[in-house]
Design a protein around this nucleic acid. Sequence first.
RNA 1: CGACCGGAUCGGGCGAUCGCGCGGUAUGUUGCCGAAAGGUAUUACCGUGAGGAAAGUCCGGGCUUCAAAGGGCAGGAUAACGGAUAACGUCCGCCGAGGGUGACCUCCGGGAAAGUGCAACAGAAAUAAACCGCCGUCCAUAUCGGGCGGUAAGGAUGGAAACGCGAGGUAAGAGCUCACGAGUUCCUAUGGUAACAUAGGUCCGCUGUAAACCCUAUCCGAAGCAACACCGUAUGUGGGAUCCGUGUUCGCACGGCUGUCUGCCCGGCAGAGCUCACAGGUGGCACGCAGUUUUCUGCGGAGCGUUACGGAGACGUCACGCAAAGAUAGAUGAUCGCCACGACAGAACCCGGCUUACAGAUCAGGUCGCAUU
Length: 125
Amino acid sequence: MKLRAITENHLYSKAYARGKKFVGRFVVVYTLPDYAASKLAKANPEKEKINRVGITVTKKLGSAVIRNRAKRVIREGYRLSDKSAKIRRGFLIVIVARGNIVKAKSTDIERDLTLAFKKLGMNAL
RNA sequence: CGACCGGAUCGGGCGAUCGCGCGGUAUGUUGCCGAAAGGUAUUACCGUGAGGAAAGUCCGGGCUUCAAAGGGCAGGAUAACGGAUAACGUCCGCCGAGGGUGACCUCCGGGAAAGUGCAACAGAAAUAAACCGCCGUCCAUAUCGGGCGGUAAGGAUGGAAACGCGAGGUAAGAGCUCACGAGUUCCUAUGGUAACAUAGGUCCGCUGUAAACCCUAUCCGAAGCAACACCGUAUGUGGGAUCCGUGUUCGCACGGCUGUCUGCCCGGCAGAGCUCACAGGUGGCACGCAGUUUUCUGCGGAGCGUUACGGAGACGUCACGCAAAGAUAGAUGAUCGCCACGACAGAACCCGGCUUACAGAUCAGGUCGCAUU
């Protein structure tokens, strides 16, 4: 299943303000039910609800190369986490990188995210 | 062998598993999103996918739009000389100054003799000079001294004080005169395409600063891919116009006006019952064009590489070969194993440069020293 990115800035603001929050070792996760989920599901040829994922990496972390790697590692971690423990659909998920992510591996992120989704009640029934 | 000098190339590799963007083939749906334009399937396979600086955005060009890029003003850039180039503020060669035993390196580059300005502090005085001193003369006087004049040799200040030094000369002095030396302008000869160098003559006495204004020569129209083109323009937001005068054959024309030519003026262009801009999409955009339909042929080009030839070199010519990264919250990766473990760092229209950052590796050259022959 492909990742669909959050493009609108106001959705990030909403997630920060009203979403559920979990602080992990390497990332901070916000989740919020997606009002447009059913509409997007109709557009999806598989007719399933999907999660929209936004990844935030601030300039504080470092140069473009470092930021790019952080995003890749988070994407891979999300993919692995979704594969091992099914995540509920129809949510906005914002993942914010923390400073120590520079040295993290994608498996570390996977553990962080799996724990986060469990705590946030995101695991599929 | 050691110490150096300038240059070129590379800048993690291999394997396994899992993933992403783009192109293609097969499979497959006729659905869904959207007002429309348009976008989008699942799976498998094949191909392809960041840099030498992709960076800074400092120059130059292509491309695009502004009717065309015409004239002038303003503004900007450059600055010895000869060449290279599509072009450049780049590159090559060379001139000048300095450093190194050397390979080689570093630095500056029109005009201060067109004009204006500025030169703090110090100093008597900063582009024009008399504070001390020296000399003459007058006054006064036991002596010290004072007035007037001459003087730039000496002292003191300063980054800079009327070229340096010696002789003549003088009351004392002074390029005032002369020899030698350094410099400026111009002329001649020789060498060089030239800047310039060398030699000879002539003339002059002129502080520095042009990254102060300025003057001279040369060049530059402006803005940038969020450009721009096309499609769509339902709805929303914002703006403009539907105005005035004159003439009128009542259609309109001209002028004002408004917008626009993106600093200004001249000189233009456009405008009216709707129109413009923004919000959407596709292209631009991944060598181009044509043929042909397949991943093929031809042509073209400041594209890249190699060879040959020409040139001192930058570079040029010919031949051959190569050239699908193309994202859009932004793909080009993740994990594991082994080896090596030490860098700077991520394309956003495309090229040529410059500048800045940078661990290590490799390759030829060259210089000096020592040893050997």
